[in-house]
Every structure is written in structure tokens, then in C-alpha cells.
């Protein structure tokens, strides 16, 4: 199947996934096949197969230590997979670096926030715009007209992106000094600035209060609608996951134990046993 995708074929139906109706006859944004990684003797992820449609919101859930963050690290090539293939917009990412994967369409946020904490909010977004609004080093050193033109453009784009979360007024604050929730939102804005086709969110609602989470939920859907991109999120807040995800993938001990729509997942005995049941107890 991998070969077919490299030639740019459409999603085969049925695929071993749950791509939404509207994306079925389009090239999937992401296709993982037999993906796996070992750390020494430990198999952290194994036989990870997943297809994500062009405008799908997908969820990745599972208990702590299941390997969810590791999947994101594999997709973004922070770790090189031990086995398997990742096709990003039909292109094999085998020989790509983290930076090249981003240039080919994956942007992400981090479970442990990773902002450029000594830079301002606006500068953080401008770093995200690095490959979108460019000019050579010399234009900057000599402050040639192109420097001013492109910097103006970067400034306007940064503010526009910040306005997604109504954060324009925070533009000149130092990123490290922001409250926790705002830091998480800034990470999303920075990721969006790189013009991705797939946005990976690692526990975006962690540490947020219920009203912030509700806002976030709305915004994730709005981001998908306006940018027409796919979103994959790791989240423990079941309310959020069940409400906005169209396809959900449940991971336990590095293996997918269930895949399906929110209704399928909620009714799946294996999932209740491994994850949802425990959640309710806790």
C-alpha cells in the first residue's frame, strides 16, 4: 500500500482507519504503517497503523506511559522509528529531520511546554513564521528595504495569528512570564505560524480550568475550519476528546487497542477495561 501512496493515489476504501466522509477520496495527510520504536529492550510503540484525513480531528488517548507522546516524537522525527513507514502528504519521512518534517507540514505543541521563554510573545510567533516570511541575513545586517518590508509583514501576520486566541495585547510580553494557559495557547499559535497541514497537540488542555478548556475546544474546531488542516490531539479530558474528535485511537502499552468513532470507543469493552473505567474511578 505504501507504494501506491507514494504515487499519489487516493485513500483506498475501506482503509484501516476511520477517515471522515468528506476526506475519503483525498490524499490523507498522514499514513503510518507498522510504525514502532524500541528504547534498548523496551518496545515503547509497536504496530502503529493510522490514517488521518485532510481535515480530520483525530484523538490519541490512553493511560500514562502508553506511548502517546512517543508517537508524536516519531511523527516529528524527534526519534527515528525502529520500524515502519510514515507518509506525510504522500511523502516518506524516513530521511527527514525534525525541521524538514515541519517544512513538509507537521507542526506540534509539547506536553511540557517548550516556548522560547526569553523572547516576547510576538517574537515566538515570528520564529514560527521563519520559513514563511523570509529574507537573507544580509538584508537584516544592512537593514535594506526588504528587511523593513518583510518585518512589517511578519509583525502583521503574527498579530493576526495571535488574534485567534485574542492574544494581541500580550504581544510584547515575555513568553516565559505568561500564565500557564496562555503559554499553551501561544504554543498552538506558534505551531500554526509554520503553515502546517497537520497540527499535533500534546495535552493542550492540561492545567486549564473548565472555561478555558471549553474555549480551547471551540478554537480547535475553528482552527480546523479556517485553515482547513488536520488536527491530532492527545488529551485526558474525555469531554473534550469525545466532543470534537471524529476518529479516536486508543493506545495501551505501545499498541493500538481500539480505533473508531467516539461512540465506538465509549462502548468498547477493552477500552473501558484499560482506560475509561479507571478514569471514572479516579
Amino acid at each position: 500500500m505504501a507504494k501506491e501512496f507514494r504515487r499519489g493515489k487516493m485513500v483506498p476504501v475501506p482503509s484501516h482507519s476511520i477517515v471522515p466522509e468528506r476526506d475519503v477520496n483525498r490524499l490523507p495527510v498522514l499514513e503510518c504503517q507498522h510504525l514502532g520504536i524500541d528504547f534498548g529492550g523496551l518496545t515503547a510503540v509497536d504496530e502503529f497503523n493510522l490514517t488521518i484525513g485532510r481535515t480530520e480531528i483525530a484523538g490519541l488517548i490512553g493511560p500514562n506511559g502508553a506511548g502517546k507522546t512517543t508517537v508524536f516524537n516519531l511523527l516529528t522525527k524527534v526519534y527515528q522509528p525502529t520500524r515502519g513507514t510514515i507518509l506525510l502528504n504522500g511523502k516518506d519521512t524516513h530521511s527527514m529531520t525534525t525541521s524538514q518534517v515541519n517544512q513538509n507540514g507537521i507542526a506540534r505543541t509539547f506536553q511540557n511546554i517548550r516556548l522560547f521563554s526569553n523572547l516576547t510573545v510576538e517574537e515566538n510567533v515570528k520564529v514560527g513564521l521563519h520559513n514563511q516570511i523570509r529574507y537573507p541575513m544580509w538584508d537584516g545586517l544592512l537593514r535594506l528595504p526588504r528587511f523593513w518590508k518583510q518585518e512589517k509583514l511578519a509583525h502583521e501576520s503574527a498579530l493576526e495569528l495571535l488574534s485567534i486566541f485574542g492574544m494581541q495585547d500580550l504581544a510584547s510580553h515575555e513568553a516565559g512570564s505568561l500564565p500557564y494557559g496562555a503559554q499553551r495557547r501561544l504554543e498552538i499559535v506558534r505551531a500554526l505560524a509554520t503553515n502546517p497541514s497537520l497540527l499535533l497537540l500534546d495535552e493542550p488542555a492540561a492545567g486549564m480550568n473548565p472555561s478555558e478548556t471549553a474555549d480551547l475546544m471551540e478554537n480547535i474546531v475553528r482552527i480546523r475550519d479556517t485553515f482547513q488542516i488536520a488536527v491530532m490531539l492527545i488529551e485526558h479530558d474525555m469531554n473534550l476528546v469525545m466532543n470534537i474528535c471524529e476518529g479516536i485511537c486508543v493506545l495501551n502499552f505501545g499498541r493500538i487497542i481500539a480505533k473508531g468513532t467516539p461512540e465506538d470507543i465509549q462502548a468498547n469493552p477493552a477500552v473501558i477495561e484499560a482506560y475509561l473505567g479507571k478514569q471514572k474511578e479516579a
Binding site: 524527534v78 524538514q100 509539547f110 516556548l115 522560547f116 521563519h130 505560524a193
Partner: peptide, 15 residues
């Protein structure tokens, strides 16, 4: 400066 502040994040935005 972004690379100084956080190397992995800098790579993740394509630097």
C-alpha cells in the same frame, strides 16, 4: 535566540 532558548522547539518549527 530561539535555538538557545529551546532547541527541540526550534527544530519543530522548521529551523
Amino acid at each position: 535566540m530561539a535555538i538557545r532558548d529551546n532547541r527541540i522547539a526550534a527544530e519543530s518549527v522548521g529551523l
